[in-house]
């Protein structure tokens, strides 16, 4: 049925061949120019002076320090946001309550805030001149111009990513499975581990992948709160900026190529997730459909 429709669409949309070629041509040109070329350029410039120069650039202690801080940031932000995503999706998808739509909008809010403004907020909240920042500094705790500021700014910009993947997924899955498990005597944790988690694992994984990628690459917000202290508060994107501004292009692109690789993994992950969830939906529709495989032993 579906493929039939598609074929017909192709027929119905039978523009003259010339129009079609122009449309396809401009698509390929536009995407090639704006997407493919910048991506290729990253790797081309990184390897301009050969593999050894590339390897040397990545092995620099400052680059390694930046990598370490970036990974630490990921290790803080991703699990916290994953935990939040699961909790929020559970509350929103499994229960009815007033104000649900407002809550969903609030969860999306960080996406509408410019990264620079996000960073600004935390400087105002935790900076040395603020009441809280001063109080914390007196106790020897520095947030801004130190790793904790980078962590919290990154948590903010990656805040909605896991929740956004899980909320629609869990809403689509419904409550039947969990209710069945509870009616069979499963406790809360058993229900979650044995029933819910296996059902949402691909969505959760993809949300975490998005979160990791975004956390590694965040620039604007981190830039405001970091103070650009070499070897201490430089994440990989900040290190790229410094190298680039010092005209050390090969080194800048070498570090950039690592982040570009991560983003390619994300894109691949998206395809896998879409494929998996389509399978899931096919499973499900076969599930409630009337026919399914042939009835064999009904009597």
């Amino acid at each position: 049925m579906l493929s039939l429709k598609k074929n017909r669409a192709a027929n119905a949309a039978s523009q003259p061949r010339l129009v079609r070629r122009i449309l396809i041509g401009s698509t390929v040109l536009f995407l090639g120019l704006f997407l493919l070329l910048p991506l290729i350029a990253v790797f081309a410039y990184a390897l301009e002076q050969g593999g050894t120069a590339y390897w040397m650039a990545i092995k620099q202690p400052e680059a390694l320090a930046a990598l370490r801080l970036t990974l630490m940031t990921v290790a803080v932000a991703a699990p916290l946001n994953a935990l939040f995503g699961i909790a929020a999706a559970w509350a929103i998808a499994k229960f009815e309550f007033r104000g649900k739509n407002i809550l969903i909008t609030l969860i999306d809010l960080p996406f509408t805030v410019s990264p620079v403004i996000a960073g600004a907020m935390f400087v105002l909240l935790f900076g040395a001149r603020s009441a809280m920042g001063g109080w914390l500094l007196d106790r020897g705790i520095q947030i801004i111009f130190a790793p904790p500021g980078i962590f919290i700014a990154t948590i903010f910009v990656t805040f909605p990513l896991v929740a956004r993947e899980l909320i629609p997924l869990m809403q689509a899955l419904g409550n039947d499975d969990e209710e069945a498990a509870v009616s069979l005597g499963a406790g809360p944790l058993q229900t979650f581990w044995r029933i819910t988690l296996p059902n949402i694992r691909w969505g959760l994984l993809y949300g975490v992948v998005l979160c990791v990628a975004r956390a590694m690459g965040e620039f604007g917000a981190v830039s405001v709160v970091s103070g650009h202290i070499r070897g201490v508060t430089n994440t990989m994107p900040l290190q790229i900026e410094i190298l680039y501004n010092e005209y050390d292009y090969v080194a800048a692109f070498s570090v950039a190529s690592l982040l570009a690789l991560v983003s390619l993994v994300t894109l691949g992950g998206k395809k896998i997730f879409e494929w998996k969830s389509r399978q899931h939906i096919i499973d499900q529709s076969a599930y409630s459909a009337q026919g399914g495989p042939v009835e064999s032993t009904a009597s």
Binding site: D176, D177, E179, A180, A181, S183, R194, I195, P198, N199, H280, D283, Q284, Y287, S288
Partner: peptide
């Protein structure tokens, strides 16, 4: 309890 759409664990 037997659910209308069975709610089998896929």
């Amino acid at each position: 309890f037997v659910f209308q759409h069975y709610a089998l664990f896929r």
